[in-house]
Design a protein around this nucleic acid. Structure first.
Length: 431
RNA sequence: GUGAGCGUAGCUCAGCGGUAGAGCUCCGGACUGUGGCUCCGGUGGUCGCGGGUUCAAAUCCCGUCGCUCACCCCA
């Protein structure tokens, strides 16, 4: 065995056995987006490498070691979509969609590529369901997209998710917070883990995020980002909370959440689910008011989120959301051939049925009649149209109701009409 | 990038130094043209790949690729 080729590490094939789950979640997401007035945008899988370096920040983990970057044949550097927001903002700027203060409400379902070590809920290619609202300063729009996501979770029957909300301030107030953090940790930093010692210099916010038990103790009483917001950020944050309360969206204020990408400002949030293990973040997002300018555009506010479809599916499987049963529409008619001579007429009958919108299947592997009946049952066929020596002679087809086992003979000339009528009746019964 | 566990039929797994097995699936038969139950039979594996130790390796050792989980990071 040992096939020569396998799907690349960290990627997966979505086989027919499970693809219906994907479709169902995607359909729910599209429907919720439609309700909220978000329209789909599709951007290329490839972007100029610079887009991510500029937008996401060259000091970030994502840019420094996780991007799939390569030169194309002309030598320019391209990168597989490493995250969802920068390409959308690029597109909005490129086509001037946010000109004259037009609010753009956009959504996407798109593959994301990151070179990481695969793990439960972490892949090198994953799919993000994302939403971006570009051109509204908030805070109502901030609350709106969190509400949108909650509605989406309700729609797919996922319970137990918790939304965490914070504000990471703006370029005005963040430096003072970092100073406060450094001052607080200065006396104890030597006792903390190696990672935190490094973070102390590069990004002290991350110390708040560390899970090392000793560090968790040491950061007891550390300053909170929320205590260092400037007046504008404070007001914005209060506005988001008020809007969420008004919409009855549950959330927890959690000042420890941190964003890994440089473009985030103010509102930051993530939704976690306890059934997931180490990778428990189902959705993450926030405001990125400085991004458009970083990409060379006019000052344009924005906020959005990304949600990992693969993780959602993992949670749905474990937490048992509704949608756990496939709604595969059963096959209307299986056309069985009892003899070699009947195979061609059976093939043609199936063709005619399909053209009258009846779903029909035939055997293509010359199996025995018995095997064909088995196959019909396996496919969930409601009716079997049987063609054999006798039927060909009598110019008729035998129709078997697979549930009751009743059979009757129908003239070949009326067969298509008859089978179509029976199938339509079945369809109604099913509703 | 670091660490641990694991890679045997389509699937789930047993075998752990003597030349490969079970259950399910699939195919066929009992039922000479008819499914879902039962019984009988059959197909199917270079035991991830490469190297080493040994008279002998799926079994031991090394390497490599992959999977899983955790760290890191993130969706």
């Amino acid at each position: 065995m040992a096939p020569k080729y396998k799907a690349p590490r960290g990627t997966q094939d979505v086989l027919p056995e499970v693809s219906w789950r994907w479709q169902r979640v995607e359909a729910a997401f599209r429907d919720i987006c439609r309700r909220y007035g978000y329209r789909e945008i599709r951007t290329p899988i490839l972007e100029d490498t610079e887009l991510f370096v500029r937008g996401v920040g060259d000091g970030t983990e994502l840019v420094s070691k996780q991007m799939y970057t390569f030169p194309d044949r002309s030598g320019r550097s391209l990168t597989l979509r490493a995250e969802g927001t920068a390409p959308v903002v690029r597109s909005v700027l490129e086509h001037n969609l946010a000109a004259q203060g037009q609010l753009q409400k956009l959504y996407y379902i798109a593959p994301i590529f990151r070179y990481e070590r695969p793990q439960a809920g972490r892949y090198r290619q994953h799919t993000q369901l994302g939403v971006e609202a570009i051109g509204a300063p908030g805070p109502d729009i901030d609350a709106e997209i969190i509400a949108l996501f909650q509605d989406f979770l309700d729609a797919i029957g996922l319970e137990g998710a918790v939304a965490h909300l914070s504000s990471i301030g703006c370029p005005e107030c963040r430096p003072t917070f970092q100073q406060a953090l450094r001052k607080f940790f200065e006396p104890v930093i030597a006792e903390m883990c190696d990672f935190c010692q490094a973070r102390y210099e590069t990004n002290p916010l991350r110390i708040l995020d560390c899970k090392a038990p000793r560090d968790v103790e040491l950061r007891e009483g550390a300053p909170s980002a929320l205590d260092h917001l400037c007046d504008d950020c404070r007001q914005h944050f209060d506005g988001v909370k008020a809007a969420l309360d008004a919409l009855s969206v549950a959330y927890e204020v959690d000042p420890t959440i941190v964003r890994g990408l440089d473009y985030y400002t103010r509102t930051a949030f993530e939704v976690v689910h306890p059934s997931l293990g180490a990778k428990d973040v189902i959705m993450g997002g926030g405001r990125y008011d400085g991004l458009a300018e970083m990409l060379g555009g006019p000052p344009t506010t924005g906020i959005g989120f990304g949600s990992g479809l693969e993780r959602l599916l993992l949670v749905l499987e474990q937490a048992g959301g509704t949608g756990s049963q496939p709604v595969r529409k059963p096959l209307d008619v299986y056309v069985a051939a009892a003899s070699l001579e009947a195979r061609q007429p059976a093939f043609l009958l199936a063709g005619e049925l399909r053209r009258t919108s009846v779903s029909a299947e035939v055997d293509y592997t010359k199996r025995s009649l018995k095997a064909q009946m088995k196959e019909a049952a396996r496919l969930g066929a409601r009716l079997v149209a049987l063609l054999g020596e006798d039927e060909l002679k009598a110019e008729a087809v035998t129709v078997r109701d697979m549930e009751s086992g009743e059979q009757l003979s129908i003239p070949r000339t009326e067969a298509v009409q008859y089978l179509a009528a029976r199938s339509a009746a079945n369809a109604e019964v099913q509703e």
